[in-house]
Design a protein around this nucleic acid. Structure first.
Length: 801
RNA sequence: GCAGGAGUGGCGGAAUUGGCAGACGCGCAGGCUUCAGGUGCCUGUGGUCGUUAAGACCGUGUGGGUUCAAGUCCCAUCUCCUGCACCA
């Protein structure tokens, strides 16, 4: 009789064995087929690991373990995205250096991850706050700077009033700081910017060549927001200068009844002497500037504006004079900051026109422009539009652009919603920006040989009230000499955002100790691109876009061998509390993974998180579900008592074995861990029903389960005396021909309703099948058969009156 | 408003190309083991009707449709989630 299953003992035992044997080290043997599996490296927060973390980690651990058994050289690394505000805030509050805080948090996280038995190659562990790591983050920044893609610009930025720090547009959510939830205001500051917009087209177009789940592609596209249209010049009446606007609907040019400038448009200032109601304009502009972006969008439903008196425009297609208004529904940051308004066919213009009683002209037939704007482009036909009348929207667009181009009145133009990336943070705990400002030479890059430019030790990490980074107070550090002219100069005191370190980390795992390059070209060529990258949906727009941008830049620089970093991207769903709500301290529904490991074992936690439901859907935690998975592993443990001396698969279970190997193999590759585990549960039910399991059945079962529950299976493998280590065993093969049985039970329907079943040969002829089928439902047959359907292996349906 | 996704037992969730709806797990009920509780094992478990049974009918958000056959395809509609949101 076997001993009791004791995960505490065996899990520790095998984790030690794997570590000592370097079981999961990726080797630099470039002749083997490679598989690079990547999960998002965590931010080592003070709270420790959350039950959400193991879900994606276990999923790719399963794939990695399986691929190793299939002979791949697998790279499955882990590291720490350790720069960031919570650590800095904790350091400020508790007067401990962020370096120490980070070190402690990392130790805790690492211990927790190791207790879960992941097959990470810990020899390749990286940490973004390690100077040997951020040396290369800075190096990439210098490359960007030298390529003209990093620039400093005075611009209104999003300023978090609590973090005292500038934020990227992406970090402002509903008008508040994504991180701390405080109010975000506009402030003009000189900021480092990265020209991600230069890559806007490629970032969209290259999505066609990668295997990302659809919603990730869609979000990336929406975020970049490419739209095709035209820039058109409207003459200002009695002026030399033209007013340039952007539109995606040049086909509606005959329907323009007014124009709108954004409140920040430079023409207002320029023509203020000729504007007779200048005071009203100024008042409106001030009111608009006081509104935050959030308020501006919140008040979207109610349009406001003022007509500019003394200024009007001329429609280039028909010479009509049209009024110009100013309104904050037009943004200076998009297009040209001015629009042509076509209330008949644009919802916003329609609302504005209705409110201010402006004329509405129908130029596309199909709707009722008095009731609402008709915006359908697919079916409309042009009316009231001169030479465009009668054309479809698509034809009209082409025709009008040609017409405008011929006369020098406009050009086709593509616009993007994507803005350049605000790259400065007025904070201590980030990578210093390796730039020096010299009175004579301007912004000068620090010489590459000086990298890493290390963070100096400061007394106080608190940001200053005037919005400068704590580094600004470090006289000794700030005052330096210009690398260019040798004169006195000052260091940049802003640091990089947290996104910087995570924008290229997957490259460093490939060659983590290289001090000559971020990674060797040979190693990059072998390992890149990442074959499978899994991460949260919350990183779909920011991290994914930023890292693709950097990678594309590095590709253009000849540093990396491929234009896209990730071949495949999947996302996991969140783990919710047992009440179906997001886990949070305040809701009191947080589950600590340590408790589960202590009470049930790591294998149970792993199995449960994979069995909980569809991988990409959110799932609510259930303590009973955890128990069920432990019960399953207990039954696996007891399987050893059923093992016989027989080899091969028993006759009764042969088909089932082949089917299960096939199902589990496929499910593990397709994120369907829940059904893969269900198949193994069903198999173990078969074993207990049979009352025995052959050695080979047992061996196959342990191998299939190993990626999910590596400790218990490794222990049983050893107890079973199969020799060697299970992690080195081969993944079981199946024979397609043996996944189907010779005879099948199929349903027999009468008029589409199931009336019986019949067991017949899989490839039975129609005659035989129907004969058997009729036999099974003979008492229901009327003899008046209209139609007989037989789908081999599936169904018999007899249609009768 | 736009985009993406989802609505299936008491619950989590399964269902290659349309082909026996509810796999697997939880929960629940009964039984065996036990002094007892727990564990373990066995059996049952979509609903309604039917004395048990045999059986019948209904059943995948709602309403239509296509088909021998629909959770799956088409049209319409409702609800929920997740992004984005005055982007011209």
């Amino acid at each position: 009789m076997s001993q009791v299953y004791n995960p505490k003992v065996i899990e520790r035992k095998w984790q030690k064995v794997w570590e000592d044997e370097k079981a999961f080290a990726a080797v630099n043997d470039y002749t083997k087929p490679k598989f690079y599996a990547l999960v998002e490296f965590p931010y080592p927060s003070g709270q420790g690991l959350h039950v959400g973390h193991p879900r994606p980690y276990t999923a790719l651990d399963i794939v990695s373990r399986k691929r190793r058994m299939q002979g791949y050289n697998v790279l499955f690394p882990m590291g720490w995205d350790a720069f960031g505000l919570p650590t800095e805030n904790y350091a400020i509050k508790n007067k401990i250096h962020p370096k120490i805080v980070t070190k402690n948090n990392v130790r805790r996280f690492k211990g927790q991850l190791q207790a879960l038995g992941y097959s990470f190659d810990w020899d390749r562990e990286i940490n973004t706050t390690d100077p040997n790591y951020y040396k290369w983050t800075q190096w990439i920044f210098l490359k960007l700077f030298k390529a003209g893609l990093a620039y400093k610009s005075e611009m209104p930025i999003n300023w978090c009033t609590s973090c005292k720090c500038g934020l990227a547009n992406e970090e402002v959510v509903n008008g508040v700081c994504e991180r701390c939830g405080s109010e975000v205001v506009r402030r003009v500051k000189s900021q480092w910017m990265l020209k991600i917009t230069n890559y806007a087209d490629k970032l969209i177009d290259d999505l066609d060549g990668v295997d990302y789940i659809e919603r990730v592609k869609v979000s990336q596209k929406n975020w970049i927001g490419r739209s095709n249209g035209a820039e058109v010049e409207f003459a200002l009446k009695d002026k030399e200068e033209k007013l340039r606007i952007y539109t995606t609907r040049p086909d509606t040019l005959f329907g323009v009844t007014y124009m709108v400038l954004s409140p920040e448009h430079p023409y207002l200032e320029k023509y203020k002497d000729e504007i007779s109601n200048w005071d009203d304009i100024v008042a409106y502009r001030e009111m608009a500037s006081k509104k935050s972006d959030f308020e501006r969008t919140e008040l979207a439903k109610d349009k406001t504006g003022v007509q500019i008196e003394g200024l009007s425009a001329v429609n280039p297609v028909n010479g009509k004079e049209i009024p110009i208004w100013v309104s904050d529904y037009v943004l200076m940051s998009y297009g040209t900051g001015a629009i042509m308004a076509v209330p008949g066919h644009d919802t916003r213009d329609w609302e504005f026109a209705k409110k201010f009683n402006l004329p509405i002209i129908e130029v596309i037939a199909g709707g009722d422009v008095e009731k609402e704007a008709y915006t359908d482009v697919a079916t409309g036909t042009l009316v009231n539009s001169g030479f465009l009348t009668g054309k479809s929207v698509e034809e009209a667009k082409k025709a009008i652009i040609d017409w405008l181009v011929e006369r020098g009145l406009g050009v086709a133009k593509t616009n993007f919603k994507l803005r350049d990336w605000v790259f400065s943070r007025q904070r201590y705990w980030g990578e210093p920006i390796p730039i020096v400002k010299c009175e004579k030479c301007g912004f000068v890059p620090v010489d590459e040989s000086e990298l890493p430019l290390e963070l100096p030790e400061v007394e106080n990490y608190e940001p200053t009230d005037n919005g400068e980074s704590p580094l600004a107070k470090m006289r000794d550090w700030v005052e330096t000499t210009c690398p260019c002219c040798g004169g006195p100069a000052k260091r940049e005191t802003d640091t990089m955002p947290q996104w910087a370190g995570s924008s290229w980390y997957f490259l460093r795992y490939i060659d983590p100790t290289n001090d000559q390059a971020l990674a060797s070209p040979e190693a990059l060529k072998y390992w890149m691109p990442v074959d499978w990258y899994n991460g949260g949906m919350e990183h779909t727009t920011l991290h994914l876009l930023y890292s693709r941008f950097w990678h594309k830049f590095l590709y253009d620089q000849g540093v990396v061998p491929c234009p896209e970093p990730y071949q495949k991207r999947t996302s996991h769903g969140m783990i919710l509390g047992s009440n179906g709500e997001k886990m949070s301290k305040s809701r009191g529904n947080v589950v600590n993974p340590d408790d589960i490991v202590n009470e049930f074992g790591a294998d149970t936690l792993r199995t449960y998180e994979m069995f909980i439901g569809a991988f990409d859907a959110a799932a609510a935690w259930s303590d009973d579900g955890v128990k069920g998975c432990r019960r399953f592993l207990d039954r696996v443990w007891k399987l050893q008592d059923l093992v016989t001396e027989e080899t091969g698969y028993s006759k009764a279970l042969e088909t089932r074995m082949h089917q299960t190997i096939k199902k589990v193999s496929n499910d593990f590759e397709n994120l369907k861990y829940n059904t893969g585990i269900a198949a193994m549960m069903a198999l173990i039910n078969d074993f207990s029903r049979a009352g025995k399991v052959t050695r080979d059945e047992y061996k196959t079962f342990l191998t299939l389960l190993n990626p999910v529950a590596p400790h218990i299976t490794e222990e049983l493998w050893e107890l079973g005396g199969f020799g060697g280590r299970l992690y080195e065993a081969s993944w079981p093969e199946y024979d397609e021909a043996k996944t189907v049985e010779d005879t099948v039970e199929i349903g027999v329907q009468i008029n589409g309703k199931l009336r019986g079943t019949v067991r017949i040969a899989r490839d039975a002829s129609k005659e035989d099948a129907l004969a058997a089928g009729k036999e099974a439902v003979s008492d229901r047959l009327t003899g008046n058969i209209v139609k007989e359907i037989y789908v081999p292996g599936k169904i018999i349906n007899i249609v009768q009156k």
